[in-house]
Amino acid sequence: MSAEYVTPISKEGLEATGFPVPAPAAKGNGGRTRLRGGRRVGVVLLGLIVPALILLAWHLSTASGYFRPSQLPSPASVLAAAVDLVQRGQLANHILISTQRVLLGFLIGSLLGVLAGALLGLSRIADILLTPTVGALRAVPSLAWVPLLVLWIGINEDSKVTLISIGAFFPVFTTLYLGLRHVDRNLVEAARAFGLNGVRLLTTVQLPAVVPALFSGLRLALAQSWLFLVAAELIASSMGLGFLLTDSQQTGRVDRIILAIILLAVIGKTTDALLGIAERWAVRRWA
């Protein structure tokens, strides 16, 4: 693995200087693998160019005094705010509680989404009976649930996790429901002709066929979970990245606001990338 990461960087470095680099195809299979690994690293590096430029522009615009620190603090002061919060022992708590809420809500919501999507996607009667209701529930803007959740469940972990679950539920439900309804009829018929039905038909044909769709639903659900987390924490909480945002707004700490936004971007992107790896594996395995 390490060779895959080191070699291509130096090779691309050589190419960048105009130094002639031997064609990798001549090296046979090993060379091709390395090239593919190199491409992936190259893509990641290219993707970092724009964030680096933004950081540079941010630094220049604050260092030149174009923005006042109360409008836009410098990158260095945001870093200092992070170090300060770490030293107070608060940052880890904010991050951990937010991540815990997202993961719990995501797990519960997507599990219920899988169950409901499977039920409505497979059972014609359940589809006819329930689809209009579920469609109407999906049309309710998510934040409309907040007052009800606060009254019913109270301002605590449960109401936040419930709100996030609602957010995670619908993407998983929708993709699985549509996926199951569009499983290749020919495949299902062939399997039926060989005596498969009920649970065996489900596990042998229908579920494997929707695995790729399910994973894209899960990725959407995870993104929704982060969205709903901030909504839940903005409204009522005493910890978490959303709380850090509102609290910093009230105390005028723009550096902490920007810190929270950057953390949300980085953590959200990281969890999405992890799920993306699982998705690529699943697509290779099942598609």
């Binding site: 020919n186 399997a191 005596g195 498969l196 042998t204 494997p208 395995r285 099942w286």
Partner: peptide, 29 residues
């Protein structure tokens, strides 16, 4: 669906996520 019959269709209709071996095994009684 009759156990005494077996069908081969115009299209192979194999499960793409299974090996050929596993696909043939679907036909076993």
């Amino acid at each position: 669906i009759d156990e005494r019959c077996a069908v081969a269709f115009q299209e192979p209709r194999l499960l793409p996520w299974h090996t050929l071996q596993a696909n043939v095994a679907i036909g076993l009684p």
